[in-house]
Design a protein around this nucleic acid. Sequence first.
DNA 1: TCCTGTTTCAAACGCCCGTTTTAAACGATT
DNA 2: AATCGTTTAAAACGGGCGTTTGAAACAGGA
Lengths: 212, 212
Amino acid sequence: MNKNDVSTKTALLEAAVKVFAAKGFSSATVREICQLANANVAAVNYHFGGKDALYSAVLEHVIGRRTELFRTGDRDPDASPEQRLEAYIRRKLRDIYALDGVTGLASDHWAIFLMEVANPSENLNLLVEQYVQAAVDELRGIVAELLNLPPMDQEVQDSALSIWGQLLDPLVMMPITDRLTPPRARVQEDLDRFAEHMVTFTLGGLLAIRDS
Amino acid sequence: MNKNDVSTKTALLEAAVKVFAAKGFSSATVREICQLANANVAAVNYHFGGKDALYSAVLEHVIGRRTELFRTGDRDPDASPEQRLEAYIRRKLRDIYALDGVTGLASDHWAIFLMEVANPSENLNLLVEQYVQAAVDELRGIVAELLNLPPMDQEVQDSALSIWGQLLDPLVMMPITDRLTPPRARVQEDLDRFAEHMVTFTLGGLLAIRDS
DNA sequence: TCCTGTTTCAAACGCCCGTTTTAAACGATT
DNA sequence: AATCGTTTAAAACGGGCGTTTGAAACAGGA
């Protein structure tokens, strides 16, 4: 295993992230990926074993990165549930929309996630197990405390879902909001303002649910 | 143009809706579509001019159906903004999640919409112009009234977006919620309860926004 | 019945895809 | 320098795809 070895392999992986994010699995071609990675067409099969295996590797890689960033967010278990909800929302919004040029663009990662949800493959199980489940459980705990209900209550699940909807919506709807008149400003460009909006809206909504 | 003529053409269209909804544009094959429609492989090119044109026809067809159903919903301009918001939410939830076996399954239509958003083609413009724009404008009007703000205010746009997020979230997240432990009950099976939840949550959220 | 335009059909075409092959280039070890 | 496992490279293979072809089947009017 020489120096160039890992270099081409990771180059392939990073190129694959970009191409898969841009075109989706079936429209992406290994030829384009290899070209972007300055590698030979045979490189994908040599290093990963095939296009499917490369895609799985990409998903594993992306899930790992996202999980890592999500875990490292600091939590204060002594804070009030309101404060923890606000922290959760801000952390997750940053996770989704912050433009971190360091470890590969997050937008590519989320584009892949979105296409995986719109057109699931068997790899979606991994995404849910390793990333979504923990994030949802945490949110459910906070919401349950706020509503003073058991975490498995139907109302808690619906509320958690309502919150996730708002978190993901700017991502999902971006192609649409870009085409609306007037086009909506992208969340990325005013993350704090949107976070503030979401927190007030959500807390108000939860209050109304609790009182109903 | 004989009797069988329109028959094969519409059969192709309906088959295409199903196959495109299940596999996405690039993974769907005209051979599979033709087989499902009991037609020859050449039929697609003869009746539509090619796979791309068939997909455009499918999207036009689906957009037309959805727009039609959305328009026919009765509105009461004299009702309070709260009532109109509730009516809007219920109407849209029904549009998305109701299982109408009559005019082709709505779920197929929304699966196509979702894939179009996750992986936009040039046809997305049509979808936004003919379907989304009007629906969003209407919602913006209601929200503006509730918040006592001009319809183009940033806060109004964000709130409308929050509402759309909740409307679409069960659809978008279905592949995920199905894989969660415990899996969430599908909205389709308890539409009224979820509608009620959404209305209280949303009104509470809007109230909090107005008072902030 | 013959003619004419329309629709179906089986077969084939050409292209691009993922993958395989085979050999050359390379790096490290002795 | 010789050897050996590892990595690259060019070329080709086989298959599936969208599409085309050309003739047969059909329907309706003269």
